[in-house]
Design a protein around this nucleic acid. Sequence first.
DNA 1: TGACAAAGTGACTTTCGAGTCATATAATAA
DNA 2: TTATTATATGACTCGAAAGTCACTTTGTCA
Lengths: 208, 208
Amino acid sequence: MPKETFLRLKTDKQERILRAAMRAFVDQGFSRAKVEDIARDAGVAKGSIYQYFADKAELFTYCSHWGIDQFMQKLDARTHLAEMDVFEYFLDSAGKTELLDEERELTLFLQCVANEPRLADASLKAMYEVGDAYGRQLIRNGKRKGSVRADIDDDLLLAYFWGVTERFERRWMSRYIDFSKEMSAESSRLMQEELTQMLTLMRNGMGC
Amino acid sequence: MPKETFLRLKTDKQERILRAAMRAFVDQGFSRAKVEDIARDAGVAKGSIYQYFADKAELFTYCSHWGIDQFMQKLDARTHLAEMDVFEYFLDSAGKTELLDEERELTLFLQCVANEPRLADASLKAMYEVGDAYGRQLIRNGKRKGSVRADIDDDLLLAYFWGVTERFERRWMSRYIDFSKEMSAESSRLMQEELTQMLTLMRNGMGC
DNA sequence: TGACAAAGTGACTTTCGAGTCATATAATAA
DNA sequence: TTATTATATGACTCGAAAGTCACTTTGTCA
């Protein structure tokens, strides 16, 4: 937890600092990132950082909490979990890409939180738990609607569903970070096409 | 690349050093791992390490090359890729677990290579490429045999297949690292059961 | 067995950046 | 306006660990 002083700051200053930190952690990793650089980038003095956080590790963990929180809020705002089943959710991937685009810094940072299991263990667990809860809900909805097979355990369905979904998202994410620009109409069409094919696989499998 | 001196060492000494390094990197991460500790653990002096490698980073990257190589050799020795299709490969997961057990250090290290993209970029790419080549072969075999649907692109099938497979492997890996002992007969039975269910999903999908 | 080269060593030097703190500035209250 | 408290600053301290090197030991060949 940050010190009181930090929490009393205006939120835009807080955010400036957290985002500067996240940027540094993304492109240097935790150990190589320098507090001094973060401070400069945020437009404050190095000493100030230590008025806000006990040490660099605390800054990192708070970033991860804050980041996850932000991301979830935005995701919640655009997803109507209550009625969706797994397939509907998956089809909405295209929409999620927009969010990833708007919140590129955040997204990149959250990916790299996973590279610091020693520091962000709790945040990581929280992330997975939230994800799992989401998935479970989607699966239950599917079973209720009759769109998801009922003969298999939710746990295993969850593993299956996230396995496919994550892989697909990463596939597009990485292309799209390489281009490091917005998606063209062309690639957007391509994605849509792959999305329907992948959906077929998820529904009917790859066997024949 | 290590210096000549290292390459002239007897292979068992080489291996002792690399394994000590891998152990340190696994449980401290690259930055926190101390060259001095690695040296002590390997039974050599710190100075010697610098006769072998230009610096700590080079030691790490060489570990990742060597590790991947080792792992692949052992995997190749026990998998008969030429005739297998995706489903047969997947069913053999239980067998692969043995390998992970025999080569626990190696496995753990390879997982943590992924946490150092900055250092192990090339190795990581190599790893993915090898994995993809494997998967493509399995898919082609499946299509030829008629066990895999032919109406979908290999690329997408690959993403689907690895998504499911990796998730499943991670699921078992993590349980089994927590127990940090060999698998009991009971959990081995449970795994077998999940394996067949997951195979059904992969073949026929989760829809209905 | 002596002489040259290769490998091994660990005390020492150097680097580097996290974290401190004495001081300055701004905000608030009385 | 002044007193008091909260916030901001960056030159400085200091510990830790990477990397060096002058010297020792081991190995090899004539």
